[in-house]
Design a protein around this nucleic acid. Structure first.
Lengths: 253, 253
DNA sequence: TCAAAAGTGTTCTAACTACACCCATGG
DNA sequence: CCATGGGTGTAGTTAGAACACTTTTGA
């Protein structure tokens, strides 16, 4: 029976032919000083930077893994996460450089070790409130920093591609779901929200049309307070109406 | 040096803690008799149906793997594919049922065999021209059939979830990219294109507005031919302007 | 008192919706 | 000859874009 033979071959040899390893890479966006920032790690004894990432435990989903990994890097428990792509080019990692990362730290690793194989990486983007993040490096990196989006270059492997796709996904999300609750402090002004949108989209927006549009979504609550101690006319503060905001997240705008 | 110890532990034990297996599941959509259809496999000695799927070889990307797998299932070389999600619930497969699938075919498999572990599945949807498909089952299945979308139930594992998400992704795509070239024969009428859109969206559209909108995209070429031998007024035939169509795929509508 | 940013309203345009009449064809 | 579906045009509505003046405040 040919199918039985094929099944047997699959059970016995499939592991060698098919086993792929999986990892997670996350693009963490923050907003500060009117700039969109990305959390990066300075890789061990290397000129390269990398995205926060890690591996999936056997008992968790990829979302849980991303959440766990980002809690370790940022200190934030409940992080806004969105899966946006899979990166699986067999040449995405360079086994020579991979191995160097270990040997430079005095860790011997054989050529056949699992950690040097091709990893298929699941890409997530995360939105966090800049001021709440306490960056912490991992075992592969010396330091963990916020970097301005435009300065995020010299990234390892295909992390520049991943970052680019994350930005595309964020822009797409902006067009049919609200963004902001996860990136801004609790109270914010309309101009601040507008800067955020402009920064993500990469082009200026009309002040009046922007305000009208935002208000029409009914996800904002205008507070009876103004931003104090600021030059020129004091702008009103707003906060998000959480119930309507999360409804808009589900149903779209 | 703590990071060295951690790195060593990672290299030696990470394989046990972290190694996840990866698979591919594809939702193949076809259109026939004014009905949206999905290609399903009747699983070996089981009441369940499954999506066409498979595993990723070490030297290929997930897209190449999906392409290869679907060529085997459909006979089509160049298939339109889109990756839309990752399915990784540790409970998505039932090891008992998985094992039964092998033992029922007379293939012994130990409990620890790789094929019984949790697989993280990458979801793709594919659009194919119904008449060009020659369905062919795989080693896990007895038969391969087209099934109407609404009759696609009794699916194994989380394949109903995957199918639902694929449909969401297809609907989303419909809203900002053209769909149709991959699902319709070379020549088609405007009402046929409209049925396709209505079937995917699940609601009727206005004939006149639909036609105007489609024509405004400039991706159609009106032919000097009409559909022959049909009841009532013979509708005009169209074909896609391939150059503009693929441009619209890239840039959106 | 002036420069710079906030707050607000109107007009124009383009896209979408709703809707009706005539035409061609097979039964 | 009539029922059915195809082909086309128009008016009304709505969302978005463009744009200018007044108000507030710190320097």
């Amino acid at each position: 029976m040919p199918s039985e033979v094929a099944l047997k071959h699959f059970v016995l040899n499939g592991g060698k032919e098919f086993l792929s390893h999986i990892s997670i890479d996350s693009v963490v966006f923050g907003f500060h000083d009117n700039q969109l920032k990305v959390l990066l790690l300075k890789m061990n004894s290397s000129e390269f930077w990398g995205l926060p990432g890690g591996f999936v435990r056997k008992e968790e989903t990829v979302e849980q893994a991303a959440m766990r990994i980002l809690k370790e890097r940022t200190g934030i428990e409940e992080i806004f996460l969105h899966q946006f792509g899979v990166f699986s080019d067999p040449a995405r990692s360079n086994p020579f450089l991979q191995r160097k990362m270990f040997t430079d730290k005095g860790v011997e690793i054989d050529e056949g070790n699992w950690a040097l194989q091709r990893f298929i990486s699941i890409g997530f983007f995360a939105l966090v409130e800049f001021s709440q993040v306490i960056p912490k490096s991992d075992i592969f990196s010396d330091e963990c920093f916020w970097v301005n989006l435009e300065d995020a270059n010299n990234l390892m492997m295909d992390h520049e591609t991943i970052l680019g796709k994350a930005l595309d996904a964020l822009r797409l999300q902006l067009s049919y779901q609200p963004v902001g609750y996860n990136l801004l402090p609790e109270k914010f002004t309309m101009p601040e929200l507008q800067r955020l949108y402009e920064t993500i989209l990469g082009h200026p927006l009309d002040r009046r049309n922007f305000q009208r549009k935002m208000l029409s979504y009914n996800i904002l609550i205008k507070l009876n307070e103004r931003r104090e101690g600021v030059a020129h006319k004091a702008p009103s503060l707003f906060k998000f109406d959480l119930e309507r905001y999360s409804q808009a997240l589900k149903e779209g705008l």
